[in-house]
Amino acid sequence: MPTVISVRNISKTFPSAGGATHALSNVSLEVAPGEIFGVIGQSGAGKSTLIRAINLLERPDTGTVTVDGEELTALPADELRRARRKVGMVFQHFNLLEGRTVQGNVELGLEISGASRAERRSRSLEILDLVGLAHKAASFPAELSGGQKQRVGIARALVGRPKVLLSDEATSALDPETTRSILDLIKTINIELGLTVLLITHEMDVVKRVCDSAALLNGGRIQEQGSVVSLISTPGSQLAHDLFPLGEVPAHPGDTVIDVTFSGGTADRPVIAQLARTYCLDVSILGAAIQTIGGNQAGRTRLQLPGTPAVNDEAIRALRGQGMLVEIVGGHS
């Protein structure tokens, strides 16, 4: 599989009061060209350290980072600076220069790379147009809303035609509606420019909305990673459980409770009606969560089967036979 970002066995330890904090332990990631890869984790999981390790704002203690075929961890300082231009980065708190206009902020990357004045002008306006802020070119960041500021941040990251966009909690400081519009913009950029995106977030909604692949980071280690579609059909996947929360399993002594995960082609079949007809089971739905992920319907349903163990077993076998993932979460089987 070709990769644009390849992280191999990186570790990072920070000295702290009580000895040392292992921010990252032996983390490896592979991001394929043109995909949106989400790293999700709680605060303190090492997300920020991980994304900063990609462009070596935070140099890992061990391991290698390769972007677009170039091993960044092996480059001397001046070549690393040049290589960083291939990696755009968007920040949670936007990090815009208050003293520059919107256009001035966007031009910063081109000034750094030594582009001519005329080129800076035309390129920055072109990219501001892409993010929908051409009319604000002469405004200062203090005059913009949070969502607009992040659009400027995205424009600044894109102006140097990077191969990869890193997004460090880009939507965490924004309200839900603005979050959606920024995520849509990232998705649009991903499709129109074919740009590979690596984003970190603590919000499952972000993964649901835009990510093709995801990794779960916990305590500085990657617990799971893979394409979102394949994770959903992985038994016992923590990410799948978080994507489709069904809550606590209720105590129903005697009855069998199962979680059925649908994905791909199985999602639109009338499964429950079939169960009821074929096995004369009065199936109760205890919970359900359906999402569109990667253009496909996917979801999980928690069902209560009131039949005898033998009938229930047969029903479960039939569901599995149709390619559905069935987990028995309560009662006997």
Binding site: L57, R84, L96, I112, R156
Partner: peptide, 17 residues
């Protein structure tokens, strides 16, 4: 804000820049 320095570094800025 140190984030501004980080943003410039991510764009490949030299220390002088």
């Amino acid at each position: 804000d140190s984030g501004l320095v980080e943003a410039a570094e991510s764009l490949g800025a030299t220390r002088w820049q």
